[in-house]
C-alpha cells in the first residue's frame, strides 16, 4: 500500500475546493441550527438555487457572471421567504420536514423535462464559469508543497473559496457578538421568552433563514464553478446530511465549527476512501466482501455511524463545550 498517496489524497481533500464549499454551506447552516435553533434540513436547496441561479443566468440567458451571482442570491432570498412564511411560526419538527421536502421538490422541478429548456433537465448546464477562471492571476500549471499538488484552476477556486470562508466567518462573528446575535441566540434558547421581551421572533428567524440561505447559495455557486457544471442529482438531501455531520463534528454554535468540521470531515472521508481502495487493490480486503465500486457506499455508511456516535458521545463536537451543551434542554 502506498501511504503517501493516501495521505496526499486526504490532505488534498481536506484543504481542497470541496472542503471550502462545504465549510461555507455549513456556516449558513450553523447560523440556522447552531445559533437560531432552526432545524433546516433543506440547506441543499439553497445551494441548488445558488448554483442554478448562476448557471441559468449565464448559460441559458447569456447574462454576465456578476448578474448570475446576484441572481443566485436573489433566488436564495426568495426561497427563504417561501419556506419561512408557512413554517417559521410552527414547531421545529414541522420546519425540519418542510425544509427537506422543499429541497427535494426543488431538485425534482429542476430536473424535470418540463423545466429542461431552462435548467437543462437531467443533463444540467455546463461551462458557465469561464469568466471566473479568466480572472485568475495564477499561471497555468500545477502548484504544491510536499505531497499536495493542485492544478492552477483548483488553486484559484480554493483561494476564492477559503477567502469567502474567511470573510463570511468574520461577518458572522461580528453579527453573533452584536445585539442582533444576542436576539438570535435567545430565540434558540427560548423563543417565548424572547417574544415576552419585545423581540419580533418571526422577523429574526426569517432574517436568519435568509442570511444562512444566501451563504448556502454562495457555497452552491462555488461548487458549480469548481466543476463548471450544475446537475440536479448533485443536490440530493444527502448533501444536507453531510453538512450536519461536519457541523456536529466541528461544533454547532461555534464560528469555526463548520471550518474545522469540514476540513476534518473531508480529510477522514478521503483517507478512508483511498485506504479502502488500496486495500482492495492489494487484496488486503477480499473483493468479494467489498468491491472498489462499493467503496463510495461504505464510506457513506461510515459517515452515518460517525454521526450517530458523535451525537451520542460528543454532541458538542470538537470546539463546543460539554458544560454548555448540558444546559440546553434540547
Amino acid at each position: 500500500m502506498d501511504f503517501s498517496a493516501i495521505v496526499s489524497d486526504a490532505l488534498r481533500s481536506g484543504i481542497g475546493p470541496i472542503a471550502a464549499v462545504y465549510a461555507l454551506a455549513a456556516m449558513g447552516l450553523n447560523l440556522h441550527f447552531g445559533y437560531t435553533g432552526l432545524l433546516n434540513f433543506g440547506q441543499v436547496g439553497f445551494m441548488l438555487v445558488g448554483g442554478y441561479g448562476l448557471a441559468i443566468t449565464v448559460s441559458t440567458y447569456g447574462g454576465a457572471m456578476w448578474l448570475g451571482v446576484l441572481g443566485g442570491i436573489a433566488c436564495a432570498i426568495v426561497l427563504a421567504l417561501l419556506l419561512g412564511l408557512p413554517t417559521l411560526r410552527l414547531r421545529a419538527d414541522y420546519l425540519a420536514i418542510t425544509t427537506i421536502a422543499a429541497g427535494e421538490t426543488l431538485r425534482l422541478f429542476y430536473r424535470s423535462s418540463w423545466a429542461e429548456p431552462v435548467t437543462g433537465g437531467v443533463f444540467g448546464l455546463q461551462r458557465f464559469a469561464n469568466d471566473f477562471y479568466s480572472l485568475s492571476p495564477i499561471e497555468p500549471g500545477t502548484y504544491g508543497v510536499w505531497l499536495v499538488r493542485f492544478s492552477s484552476r483548483d488553486l484559484w477556486v480554493m483561494i476564492v473559496g477559503w477567502a469567502l470562508v474567511l470573510v463570511v466567518g468574520g461577518l458572522l462573528a461580528l453579527l453573533i457578538h452584536s445585539p442582533w446575535g444576542r436576539v438570535i441566540r435567545s430565540i434558540r434558547e427560548d423563543e417565548v421568552a424572547a417574544r415576552s421581551l419585545g423581540k419580533n421572533v418571526y422577523a429574526y428567524k426569517m432574517q436568519s433563514l435568509a442570511l444562512g440561505g444566501v451563504i448556502g447559495a454562495v457555497a452552491g455557486m462555488m461548487q458549480a464553478i469548481q466543476v463548471q457544471s450544475v446537475n440536479p442529482d448533485n443536490y440530493d438531501p444527502g448533501v444536507t446530511f453531510f453538512l450536519y455531520t461536519l457541523l456536529v463534528l466541528g461544533g454547532a454554535g461555534r464560528i469555526l465549527g463548520p471550518v474545522v468540521g469540514s476540513i476534518l470531515f473531508w480529510f477522514v472521508l478521503s483517507f478512508l476512501d483511498s485506504a479502502l481502495r488500496q486495500a482492495i487493490d492489494a487484496e488486503h480486503i477480499s473483493p468479494d466482501l467489498i468491491s472498489t465500486s462499493e467503496v463510495g457506499a461504505v464510506r457513506f455508511a461510515l459517515v452515518g455511524v460517525a454521526l450517530i456516535l458523535l451525537v451520542a458521545f460528543r454532541p458538542q463536537g470538537i470546539l463546543g463545550s460539554r458544560k454548555e451543551m448540558l444546559l440546553s434542554g434540547r
Partner: peptide, 27 residues
C-alpha cells in the same frame, strides 16, 4: 424562562428596549 446558554448579563442586555444594534446591518 431563563435563556440558559446566555449569561446572566446577556439575559438582561437582551431585554433593553430600542437597541440600535438589533438590526442586522447596524449590527
Amino acid at each position: 424562562r431563563a435563556l440558559a446558554r446566555l449569561t446572566v448579563l446577556e439575559n438582561l442586555l437582551l431585554a433593553a428596549p430600542g437597541q440600535r444594534g438589533e438590526g442586522a446591518l447596524p449590527a
